[in-house]
Amino acid sequence: MSRVPSPPPPAEMSSGPVAESWCYTQIKVVKFSYMWTINNFSFCREEMGEVIKSSTFSSGANDKLKWCLRVNPKGLDEESKDYLSLYLLLVSCPKSEVRAKFKFSILNAKGEETKAMESQRAYRFVQGKDWGFKKFIRRDFLLDEANGLLPDDKLTLFCEVSVVQDSVNISGQNTMNMVKVPECRLADELGGLWENSRFTDCCLCVAGQEFQAHKAILAARSPVFSAMFEHEMEESKKNRVEINDVEPEVFKEMMCFIYTGKAPNLDKMADDLLAAADKYALERLKVMCEDALCSNLSVENAAEILILADLHSADQLKTQAVDFINYHASDVLETSGWKSMVVSHPHLVAEAYRSLASAQCPFLGPPRKRLKQS
C-alpha cells in the first residue's frame, strides 16, 4: 500500500486566492494483479454453464480479502454459449462490502496482453458476489490457432484489481511565511564533478583513453575500487588504474551511474553493462540491467540471455529466462542460440529441462510459493 502523499503547497495549487485553511483528501486504492494459466484448455468440458475456478489470491499475505477468477468455457447461458465468460469473485471478506475495479486480458504466445476488457467503474462486491463479462471473447476466435491465444493449448488470463480503501483527510492552515525547501541536487552536482573533471585525484585508463576521477567517490560506490585504493596496490601508489576489459562507451555509462545513480543509455548496452556491474560489484546497476534484459526477452535471444545471466550470477534474470524458455519451449528449441547452448553450456540445458519437467508435473513435489530491489 502506498504512503499517503503530503498535500501540495497551496501557493502551487492555483494562481488564484489562497485560503486560510485547507483539506486534502486521499482515497486510498490498493492495486494488484494475478495470472492464471489453464493447461490443455481444449479438453475443458463443453457443457453450457460449466465452471472452472482459479485458486484464491489477494494483494498480499496480510490481506484478508480473498478473490478468485471464474471461467465458463462455453458461456454462462444460452445467450453467451458462443463466448467464454469471465468473472472476478470475492471469496471471503471481513467487511460487509468492498468496491473494486478490474481489468481482464489474455496473454498471447509472446506474453503480450490482448483482448483487454475492464470495468468502467468500481463495482460493489459482497462475499460470494462476482462481476465480469458474460461475453468476454468469442470461442471461435479464441480457438483459432492463427490468433495465437492458446500457445501449446494453454489459456493464460491476466487480471488487474484495484480495491478502494478508506479515504484519509489531511488538513492544515496557511501561513504568510511559507518556506520552500529546494530539491536535493546531489546527483546532478556529483555528475558535474565527473563531467568537468574537477578536483580529480586519479586516472582511469580504458582502451587508450584516459578519464579523470575521484578516488573517494569510486571507493564509496564500488567495493572493488575501494579494495584497489585501500591496500598497497599499484593503483593506490600511482593513482592510476588500467581497465582492459570494458569498452570506453560502456565504461562511461558505468561511471555515470557511479556518480549519479542513473544510467540513461542502459537499454542500448544492458548486456555489456551487466558484465561491468558484476565485475565492479555495483549491485543496483546489475539489477537494473537484469530488468532491462528481462523486458527484451524473446524467442530468438532467450538462450543467449540465459548464458549471460549464468555467467554473471544474475539470479533474477536467470529465473526469468528459464521461465520464458519453459513457456515458449517449442519455439526456443528451434533457435540457433539454443542449439549452440546445447554444445557450449549443457548444464544450462539440463537446468531448463528440470524446470520444465517440474512445471508440467506438479505432483512430483509440493507447490512452490512464489514470493528486491534495493
Rank of each mutant, 00 (worst) to 15 (best):
S42I: 03
S15K: 11
Q316I: 03
K53N: 07
I258R: 00
N301H: 05
V71E: 11
E97T: 02
A109F: 04
S33V: 08
Y24S: 06
P5S: 08
P5D: 01
W131R: 01
Q127L: 09
A352D: 01
V332F: 09
M13Q: 02
G49L: 09
S21H: 10
I52V: 13
V51H: 05
D201K: 00
D166M: 07
P248S: 03
S55G: 11
E118A: 01
L356C: 03
L143F: 07
E253S: 00
L157D: 00
S298K: 11
G60Y: 11
L293F: 05
F211H: 14
I305F: 08
F158K: 07
L348D: 00
F225M: 12
F43V: 06
L86S: 12
L76Y: 14
S222F: 11
K74Q: 01
E183T: 04
G111D: 12
F141M: 13
S6E: 11
W36I: 04
M228D: 14
S167Q: 06
I258S: 05
D278G: 03
L186R: 02
H345E: 04
V179S: 07
S340F: 09
R99K: 05
M35V: 02
D310E: 02
G172F: 08
V161D: 00
R124L: 06
S21E: 03
V179Y: 08
D291G: 05
W22E: 01
L193T: 09
S55T: 04
A302Y: 02
L356A: 04
Y280C: 01
K279V: 06
F225T: 01
V126M: 12
M178F: 05
Y259W: 01
D331T: 11
N62T: 11
G261D: 04
P8N: 07
Y280I: 01
S55Y: 11
E79S: 02
E46S: 04
K262D: 03
E300M: 05
R368I: 03
M178C: 07
E290N: 06
S2L: 05
E112R: 14
W194G: 06
V322K: 11
N62E: 05
S2A: 10
N39T: 07
H312Q: 03
L186D: 05
T114S: 04
V181G: 10
E210G: 14
A292Q: 15
N244P: 07
G208F: 12
D188K: 05
N265T: 05
P362S: 13
S298Y: 06
Y327W: 06
G365Q: 09
Q173N: 03
L204W: 08
W131S: 00
A19L: 03
A357V: 03
F211L: 10
S80M: 11
V287I: 02
L308N: 14
E12A: 04
A146G: 04
N72L: 13
N40T: 08
L273H: 00
E234H: 14
F133W: 08
A109C: 09
R240G: 01
A277P: 01
R368M: 15
L193P: 02
I52M: 02
A187S: 04
M35H: 03
D310I: 04
A116C: 12
D272M: 02
V30E: 05
D63V: 02
D291P: 12
E334V: 01
K215I: 14
S92C: 12
L90S: 04
S313W: 12
W131L: 09
P248A: 01
G192W: 05
W131N: 01
S330I: 12
P223E: 09
N326V: 01
G128I: 13
E160A: 12
D152H: 15
T260W: 05
L218H: 00
F225I: 15
D291Q: 09
H312D: 10
V163F: 13
K66F: 06
Q26R: 12
E189C: 02
T200P: 06
S92M: 10
L90F: 09
E97W: 10
H214Y: 03
S295W: 09
N265K: 03
S295Y: 15
V4T: 00
S58A: 12
L204D: 00
H347D: 08
S80N: 04
N62V: 11
V126H: 07
L149M: 14
S58T: 06
C93V: 05
D140K: 11
V163P: 06
G192D: 08
S197M: 13
D315N: 05
K252T: 02
V161S: 09
R221E: 15
C93T: 06
G172E: 02
P366A: 13
D63E: 13
A352S: 04
